[in-house]
Design a protein around this nucleic acid. Sequence first.
DNA 1: CTACTTTTTGACCATACGGTCAGAAAAAGA
DNA 2: TCTTTTTCTGACCGTATGGTCAAAAAGTAG
Lengths: 213, 213
Amino acid sequence: MVQPQRPLSRKEIRQENERLILDAAEKVFAEAGFGGATMQLIADLAGLPKANLHYYFPTKEALYRRVVQDIFHVWLQAADIFDDASDPVEGIGAYIDAKMEISRRHPAGSKVWASEVMHRAPVIQDYLETTLVEWTEDRMAVIHRWIREGLMDPVDPRHLLYMLWATTQHYADFGHQIETLNGGRPLSDEEWAAAKASVKTIILNGIGARTAQ
Amino acid sequence: MVQPQRPLSRKEIRQENERLILDAAEKVFAEAGFGGATMQLIADLAGLPKANLHYYFPTKEALYRRVVQDIFHVWLQAADIFDDASDPVEGIGAYIDAKMEISRRHPAGSKVWASEVMHRAPVIQDYLETTLVEWTEDRMAVIHRWIREGLMDPVDPRHLLYMLWATTQHYADFGHQIETLNGGRPLSDEEWAAAKASVKTIILNGIGARTAQ
DNA sequence: CTACTTTTTGACCATACGGTCAGAAAAAGA
DNA sequence: TCTTTTTCTGACCGTATGGTCAAAAAGTAG
């Protein structure tokens, strides 16, 4: 272990500890659900005494709320790709790649999100009703434009989006099932590439996506 | 309330109460997760005193186990359709219809299953490793046959199955999100029909499914 | 009706959990 | 150095929860 020479400043201590706690909390909430998670477990995983958690986050709910909000923002960012594209092959293809990558790198976050929504979004319902609704409408507009431009078949954009979310997040949320069906081994680099390719092929084919000239 | 003339026999009492408890448990486990569910809540919903639950199911875990097992069997049955079909348009189309119908009629069951798998299948891992593995291999063989017969494109059957599961179950597991994006209203009959149609169109198109002559 | 078995239930218990607090330790400022 | 502010932490508390139990109620068989 390399010890820093200078003692950490207060700001650094705060940032470092909040990070430790949030990372641990994400994992524990993902593995046990909100109800099954305990502050003690999170504290142990973060390597801090339980009372210290309550110093940074007053309640279990406040901590959970922060975890869910952080995840939501990661996801929103990942969707910028969508807008910059000139055709569905590029836009939806890149979106699938991005979401599959998130499923691979942050499966815990995806599970926490899924759990939150499954339980009727007790803490982020307001986000769903505002930010997510806007986000969805914007992307639906893009898809409608592509349809008008003859770049893809006239599918219902809403259900296309649901399919994109469902399919990509499945690789995180049901990762354990996939691993079991893969002989107990996590997907290798090649298998992840094959998964991405399969998803892209079927969906892009399925909506008759064409590239812009 | 219509009261039966004859008092219930012991066998009837047992069946009736187990059914009441299992139905209530499915709902509560779905809404709160295993950790968040309480025996008291289940008891209240079932209209029985808590001690009575422990008479029929010794522990919370035993009750949960039965709920998950029951769901698993419903799903396995729904897949018989797959085998009886002579081509992917019929087989996969009917499978999508069946799974969408389950998502619509038994969303709680789907959520319990999702939660169980997300938490690394603590109670049904053995089922995953035996029954589900067999089931999956059988269906993969069917898909491989359809590919050999030129009835669909040579897609990876594994990832096609994942896409089918992901897409159909999404309408149950993320039903709350879908409802929110639908203006706060649950999907109407017509909207469910549109959802089914969208999923079938995109996937069957996506794999180049053709009907047998 | 009588003896027996199954079912029901209120009261109770031990434990685990979220949260509090007072005082110690450490950093920052003068 | 001395004072103030922030961070840390063991010990503690009230409550909610899963589970138990003994006795009552209800069904069954003769």
